[in-house]
């Protein structure tokens, strides 16, 4: 009996999916890695969580997880958002793997909408939950058409859309799910991560896997893949910038959440990546709204 056939709690297979299903998903993953940025169809299963809530990422994670893995799950950059808690609990129950909130300790990180601020290293795998894998979907709703466009590398429609943005708004008005070109070939949807995170995908030493359950697609970026955000010479790609540092840890150059503190226009900006923020505070950094350990203990 291999590790993956060992049953976990409740009489279900290790990490819920049976071996045949895992094999099918692994084949799709391998093909996706072999053709970076290309969407590989796979026979996604009905999972015990709703479609649109991470079933694609969950199936990818279930297929790659081994008993020795350390799993981290984030949603909006945070480990303690309800859906991240729910998914982490699912794998804790069905696969009995070690879980962590520390980016550096994790071997597999499942994410929705963010890439951790701490740079990922070799051997780590980032699994994205993807709602709509097709970057051309909102320009052309038909799969039959978009498949042909990818096959011919015919991305004129996308460039026209970006150009129209500039004509209307003076800039490319896409702030998340900002399309990228992979290895100069496929245009890919980075999932609805803010465009702030796009540069982190480029030449990342980690393996990046994307799972879309409802749409039944898997795609991948092998380590050290060229990932370039689409732009124009006179309108180069500009990642989102924030004016102030994190109010808790004082970090700059990180993605911030706006927290409304009262009903009189009061707001503060704090790290979206909770692990990054906590680690910095533990190291002694602090921002304007957090003075140090003692304050938190009495809060």
């Amino acid at each position: 009996m291999t590790a993956s056939t060992a049953t976990a709690a409740g009489g279900y297979a290790f990490a819920y999916l049976d071996d045949q299903t895992k094999r099918m998903i692994r084949r799709a993953i391998l093909k996706a890695i072999a053709i970076p940025g290309h969407q590989v169809p796979f026979a996604a299963r009905d999972m015990p969580m709703p479609y649109g809530w991470g079933t694609g990422g969950i199936q990818v994670t279930a297929a790659i997880l081994g008993p020795a893995d350390v799993l981290k799950v984030i949603d909006q950059g945070a480990d303690d958002t309800t859906n991240a808690v729910s998914i982490r609990k699912f794998f804790k129950t069905t696969a009995n793997v070690a879980v962590t909130t520390r980016t550096t300790e994790a071997t597999v990180i499942q994410t929705r909408h963010r890439i951790p601020e701490t740079p990922l290293g070799p051997g780590q795998i980032l699994v994205y939950q993807v709602p709509i894998p097709e970057p051309l979907r909102f320009l052309e709703p038909r799969e039959t058409e978009t498949r042909v466009m990818h096959a011919l590398a015919d991305y004129g429609l996308m460039h026209v859309k970006l150009y129209e943005d500039i004509a209307t708004h003076g800039r490319i008005a896409k702030t998340y799910a900002y399309p990228v070109k992979v290895e100069g070939r496929y245009v890919m949807d980075p999932s609805p991560t803010p465009k702030f995170d796009n540069p982190k995908m480029h030449l990342s030493p980690a393996l990046q896997l994307f799972g879309a359950g409802r749409e039944k697609r898997i795609y991948a970026l092998p380590p050290f893949t060229h990932v370039v955000s689409l732009d124009f010479e006179d309108h180069p790609f500009e990642p989102t910038r924030f004016d102030a540092p994190c109010a808790l840890c004082g970090a700059t150059g990180v993605y911030l959440d706006e927290v409304v503190t009262d009903d009189a226009g009061g707001r503060m900006f704090v790290c979206s990546d909770t692990d990054h923020c906590e680690t910095r505070r533990a190291e002694g950094h602090h921002g304007t709204e957090w003075a140090g350990e003692a304050t938190e203990a009495t809060a």
Binding site: D46, P50, Y51, G52, W53, T55, D75, Q76, G77, T81, T82, N83, R112, H113, R114, P131, H169, A173, T175, Y176, A177, P192, T193, P194, K195, F196, R214, T240, Y255, L256, D257, E258, S272
Partner: peptide, 28 residues
């Protein structure tokens, strides 16, 4: 099952993307 999941997933937090849109709308 697919339809209800995707429609209802709008209940999940989207504040990271919303933040990005907020920033853009403020700028515009």
């Amino acid at each position: 099952i697919q339809a209800t999941g995707f429609v209802e997933h709008l209940k999940l937090p989207h504040y990271v993307d919303f933040q990005a849109e907020l920033g853009l709308v403020r700028k515009l």
